[in-house]
Nucleic acid binder design. Sequence first.
RNA 1: UCAGAUUAUCAGCUGAUCGCGUGCCUAAAAGCACGAGGAAAGUCCGGGCAGCAAUAGGGAAAAGGUAGUUACUAACGGUAACCGGGGGCAACCCUAGGGAAAGUGCCACAGAAACGAUACCACUAAGACUUGUUCUUAGAAAGGGUGAAAUGAGUGGGGUAAGAGCCCACAGUUUAUAUCGGUGACGAUAUAAAGAGGUAAACCCUACCUGCUGCAAGGGGAUGGAUCCUUUGAGCCUAAAGCUCAAAGUGUCCCGCUACAAGGAUCUCAUCAUUCAACCGCUUGAACCUAUGUGGCAACACUGGGUCUAGAUAGAUGAUCAGCCUAGACAGAACCCGGCUUACAGAUAAUCUGACUAA
RNA 2: GGAGGGAUGCAAGAGCGGUUUAAUUGGCACGCUUGGAAAGCGUGUGUGCGUGCAAACGUACCGAGGGUUCGAAUCCCUCUCCCUCCG
Length: 109
Amino acid sequence: MLDRKHRFHGYSSLKKVYPKTTSVRGSFISLRYLRTNRPYRVAVVVGKKVHKSAVKRNRIRRRVYEAIRLSNQLPESTDLIFNVYSDQVIDLDFAKLREQIDELLAKVA
RNA sequence: UCAGAUUAUCAGCUGAUCGCGUGCCUAAAAGCACGAGGAAAGUCCGGGCAGCAAUAGGGAAAAGGUAGUUACUAACGGUAACCGGGGGCAACCCUAGGGAAAGUGCCACAGAAACGAUACCACUAAGACUUGUUCUUAGAAAGGGUGAAAUGAGUGGGGUAAGAGCCCACAGUUUAUAUCGGUGACGAUAUAAAGAGGUAAACCCUACCUGCUGCAAGGGGAUGGAUCCUUUGAGCCUAAAGCUCAAAGUGUCCCGCUACAAGGAUCUCAUCAUUCAACCGCUUGAACCUAUGUGGCAACACUGGGUCUAGAUAGAUGAUCAGCCUAGACAGAACCCGGCUUACAGAUAAUCUGACUAA
RNA sequence: GGAGGGAUGCAAGAGCGGUUUAAUUGGCACGCUUGGAAAGCGUGUGUGCGUGCAAACGUACCGAGGGUUCGAAUCCCUCUCCCUCCG
């Protein structure tokens, strides 16, 4: 999990950013981003259609957050929204997950 | 040894590195402490708490719920013990278990008839003639047939034209009364009476219970001011229009109570607050652990001692590596408790039952 | 998080506990009509299992599983999935 200042806060903050973003697609995760003049902010969205169980959705979210945290390619002032649309992230090898995340971030940069 | 029954507990662990939330301490950082469940789930019940002025005050109606008894509990549709019924050789388990002898409805098809009635076949008697596998009238309601169910008490005997609780004996059912046992449901015995179809998870009756809305409750901005709209009643008036005056709340009504403001919308003028839907509510509570403790069959209560044990807000408990074994199931707090229901790999312990073998 | 509503054939959508009611409409298939099509008219049309060469017949299924009843799509309980609302 990331530090509090690098996350989104409030219901409407994410809603306001969402329609202005441009999107980049990966194999299990898509990324929407928007350049700003603040420190970077990150959100990970795992919809209920990905998996029914709350435990498994939590696990996906935490693994993705962790992969983002360990990445050294984070841009300085950008809003990032990771949208997970596949439940294969649960069992995916962690090194491969990191590869994917880095790939997406490289596209943004 | 094998096959069961019941209850309780646990729900991977250890170490390293890098992270997250809250609290403490700080100017800040660092540091230290703590950080999901037995079901956190379903939201099926019961409460607390908050708002509606209310222990939401009393009564009535409507609507909904519960249903053996006695206890327990803050309360319950929950729990415990017991009673009745059912299952099992047994330990033990299951049970929406009030009333159909208050009333109404329904019981398709088939059948004579589905409940104040009625008679297809067969049975009995009398009569008729065309004298026979005949017809008519009467009797009877035990047998056959129909159907889930047929007037609803089985067996044996008597009785009769033929029969039938029509009568008798024995067995059994229900209701009432009495006595005994039990707080009670109920059980046992005796006497009397009766013959009553099923369905109340159909309406209903009886007894008891329930105000509504839910933390997205609610608080956090309160008071004054201005403008506009709407309804009902009364008065002026022949009537309409118009004008004037009055109007409360209790989410159904009456009483009672509170109160002297009709209700609604808009403006943002004055003071005040303001990055974010901030912040509060938000976690010490019918709390948890414990005792060769006390009372009780038990649920549970009391007493003594000890503990502080998540409180996030787009939402914290994770990631990676290494080791061990029995190889890790179901599953993530969102205001909080007490239950119920549903999901769940297994492991361990205790008590009990049956069968077999040995002594 | 809390509150409410729903699930019936390929699709939409009715359905008082009763022998036949799984109505109706669309879609689809076949036939008639036409030189050929469209439209129109007529007939048929869910799935599984069993019997049968076939036609056909029997039986079960109304989201799933239990219960009440002589008899449940319908009444009661539990579960699954879908939709709507809240400041």
